[in-house]
Each structure stands twice: as structure tokens, then as C-alpha cells.
């Protein structure tokens, strides 16, 4: 990694920690308790940005998948980016549902309700769990990338249809009984600022996590290649002594595509 990139990365890490710390202070100390919901409402400063991060992740996955599928921009980098982003997305979708449940229990009186947003988020969670399971299947890089890109795009296309059908389902058949999602349309100035700050902080967190996960994915790929190369050499009886000759040999390692072609 070049110097300025690494410095920029460190700066992002620091900014993320700072922004999250400030968010904690704003949410717990500065913002007033909600008139109706009391302190439970403070969970919103976490829940809303976490949900935003989850949707942002899947958006990036979809975009990267599309860029991989278009022949002009096809590169394994997009595939790694899509995978890294989807992992973050699944974790934060799970957190969104969890935080929402914890908040809903005191405020709505239930852990779960069949609200459109809740159902859509739950389906999204399962769609991308499947996507990640598909990515974990061992395959040549370009084969895996193509499978994942198609699955990722279908999953994202599915989301608006799921959302629309759940909205119709709930509004056409029965009125929302337990809750009205717009409990608090009039929002206090400090609350709005805190919420906005939360979104900024979590966007920074996303960039940081994505950067590290992407780097890690690249390293994982390299490790796979090295192990594969070593196995090939061992099979040929060239390198009985593991790792050391292979690592020195790594300089002349053929690139991913050639290796995967050879595999096939």
C-alpha cells in the first residue's frame, strides 16, 4: 500500500472512532429524552444509522455486482468489493432487526410486528445470507464472481417488490394495529442533529470496515493462490519443504485468472 493511501486509511480510522465517540456523547448526554418514549428513544440514534449502513452496503454490493457483470468493467476487484460489502450488510441488517426489537418492546409493546419495513428487512437478511453462503462455496475466482454477481443483483431487484407487496399486504387487508411507524414526526432540533451525526458517523464506519474487509479479502485470495501453488508443486514433487520455497516463488506466481483457467 502506498504511503498516502495508508495515511488516508489511518485518518479514516481515527475519524470513525472520533465520530462514533461524539455520537455517543450527543445521543446519551446532549439530546433531550423523548416526550413520549423517554430514554428508549435514544436507541433510534443507533438504530436508524445502522439501518442506513445496512442498506448502503447492499447498494454497493449491487453496484459492484453490476460492474462485474458488464464486460467492459469486469474485474475481480468488484467481486471482492461486493462480497466485503455484503458481509458488512448482513451483520448490520441483523443488528438493525435486533436493535429495532429491543426498542419496540418498551415502545410498541411487542418484539416484532408485521410492518412493511420490518418484513422487507427480514427478507433482505435472508436473501444476503444465501448470497454469502453461495460465496463460501469453493470455486475458481471468476466462476464464483459470476455466480455471486447474478445472485446479488437478483437479490437487490427483489427488495422493491418485497417491500411493495408487504405494504399492499398490510394496508389492503388490515390497518396497522399495534403501531404507527410515524410516532414522532415533530423532531427536536438537537435530536435531528444527533440523528444526522449518527448517519455521518456510521457512513465513516462503513468506509473503514469496507476498506479493511476488502484488504483482507485480497489477502485471503493471495493465501489461497499460494496454497494452491504449493499443492501443485508438491504434487509434482518439486517442493517437499513447504512454504519457504513457495513464498520465494510467489514473485513469479501466475495471476489469478491463469491459475483458475489451468484448474479448469
Amino acid at each position: 500500500m502506498t504511503g498516502w493511501r495508508s495515511r488516508l486509511g489511518q485518518l479514516t480510522d481515527l475519524a470513525t472512532v472520533g465520530a462514533l465517540g461524539t455520537l455517543g456523547y450527543l445521543a446519551l448526554v446532549v439530546a433531550p429524552p423523548d416526550a413520549v418514549q423517554g430514554d428508549a428513544q435514544r436507541l433510534m440514534y443507533l438504530h436508524v444509522p445502522v439501518a442506513w449502513l445496512a442498506y448502503l452496503s447492499f447498494g454497493v454490493t449491487a453496484l459492484a455486482s453490476l460492474l462485474y457483470l458488464v464486460p467492459a468493467t469486469r474485474s475481480l476487484r468488484w467481486d471482492l468489493l461486493a462480497g466485503a460489502s455484503a458481509e458488512i450488510g448482513v451483520v448490520f441488517t441483523g443488528l438493525t432487526i435486533l436493535l429495532g426489537s429491543i426498542w419496540a418492546r418498551p415502545v410498541w409493546g411487542v418484539w416484532w410486528t408485521w410492518d412493511a419495513r420490518l418484513v422487507t428487512t427480514a427478507v433482505l437478511f435472508f436473501l444476503f445470507l444465501g448470497y454469502l453462503a453461495l460465496r463460501q462455496v469453493p470455486a475458481a475466482p471468476h466462476v464464483r464472481a459470476r455466480r455471486a454477481a447474478v445472485a446479488g443483483l437478483v437479490a437487490v431487484t427483489d427488495v422493491p417488490v418485497v417491500h411493495l407487496s408487504v405494504i399492499w399486504w398490510r394496508t389492503l387487508h388490515q390497518q396497522p394495529t399495534v403501531l404507527n411507524p410515524e410516532l414522532n414526526p415533530q423532531i427536536h432540533g438537537v435530536m435531528a442533529t444527533t440523528l444526522l451525526w449518527g448517519v455521518v458517523a456510521f457512513t465513516l464506519l462503513y468506509v473503514t470496515l469496507l476498506r479493511h474487509r476488502y484488504r483482507l479479502a485480497g489477502l485471503e485470495e493471495q493465501r489461497e493462490e499460494l496454497l494452491l501453488h504449493q499443492a501443485v508443486l508438491e504434487r509434482r514433487g518439486i517442493a517437499a519443504d513447504p512454504l519457504v520455497p513457495v513464498l520465494s516463488d510467489a514473485q513469479s506466481l501466475p495471476d489469478t485468472q491463469t491459475l483458475s483457467e489451468a484448474q479448469r
Binding site: G130, A133, L134
Partner: peptide, 29 residues
């Protein structure tokens, strides 16, 4: 997509069923 994968029997339902959620919902409604 899952055709060449060894664990396709278990992977296919996980992939296909969430995508088909609107079908079940919409058609049933």
C-alpha cells in the same frame, strides 16, 4: 447457478425461497 456445486440441495432452497417471498405473498393475496 447452484448446479455445479456439491452442496446444491441445501443451498438452492436458501437462495430461491427468499426471492420467491413476493410470489407466495402476492399470489396468496
Amino acid at each position: 447457478l447452484a448446479g455445479a456445486i456439491r452442496s446444491r440441495e441445501t443451498l438452492l432452497p436458501l437462495l430461491a425461497l427468499p426471492v420467491l417471498a413476493p410470489v407466495v405473498l402476492g399470489a396468496a393475496r
